[in-house]
Amino acid sequence: MINSIKNSTVDDVKSLEKNKSIALIFLNRKFLLLLLFIIIYAFFAVFAHNFNSFQNIESIMIFSVEIGLLSLGETLVITSGFGGIDLSVGSMLGLSAIVIGELIGRFGLNIWLAIIIGLLVGTGTGLFNGLMIVYAKIPPLLTTLATMYLYSSLALLVSMDQYGNAMPISNFPSIYSIFGQSNILGIPLQFILFFIPITIILYILVQKTIFGKHLLSTGTDEIVSKLSGINVNKIRLWVYTISGLLAAIAALIETSRIASARPDLGSNMNLEAITISVLGGTYIFGGTADIIAVFIASILVTMLDNGLFLIGVNTIWQTGALGFLLIGALILDLIIRKRSL
């Protein structure tokens, strides 16, 4: 039964039977995104100076990692259903970042210990979201709205100096820069050692494990899942916690890349993470996730930002472009669904 729920809604199955060949190609989110990827790439390669250089491609990889990790967490959360959404990913990133920064920069703690504590803080914030949602039964939108305030405010408090001003930390030892500023065979380390492995792990988790099947089933129909003996609460608790952990890993990479920790890091990444997740085919009411497509989408969006910047579009249009992209993706969805029905 779970298998039939797995990847496609009933509508999709119907449409596949009706118009198999077209539907197969177009309902495949990865194919669509790759097509879009090639078109956008070709456009910028022609019109943007220096876009098609090795250095630029490298920087696209670097910038895609942090937002990509947040989007992956967001994807799991949205997939779990019950109005699942995480507005606090950016704040969790900010709080973890400033905790790591303070521990190393102000208290001179051992780097590795500080990193572990930072990751624990991120995981803890995610777990707290999960607990409020699962046990206090507060809808995710409200829980994460409230914790977005809480965590970003905590981040400011942690960074406060004796005069009550929020201070950034930037005296990291040089070895700390290894996570965000080094590369392996010319490819950024964080891309190879963090982004790709995490994507693969999550892909396996969602597509190949019992946990993943339970997650998709929970998001599709909570009541049926409960009746089939799935511990829905446990699944939800896990996805919010994972989202927190991923935000903390993103915090580690970002503080290392810019060699500085500020409490407001990640403050405008919530919208972007949700956009990328939806662009990657995550169904906003839960039950459908395509981890690989989200991976592609995060690179796509980073590339779009980068390309627009290079052809001289003002950077303030980045959020606007993101909004148009999101609406465009959803309109495309609508057309495809209508066609294939």
């Binding site: 003002n314 959020t319 909004g323 148009f324 999101l326 309109i331």
Partner: peptide, 27 residues
């Protein structure tokens, strides 16, 4: 229009327009 005619979930539709309108402010 986005919510009713295109059937986009309100949170997503308004997130998108939040970004678009903000960019327009700067413009």
């Amino acid at each position: 229009l986005l919510i009713w005619n295109l059937k986009i979930a309100p949170i997503i539709a308004t997130l998108a327009t939040m970004g678009i309108y903000r960019s327009l402010v700067f413009t």
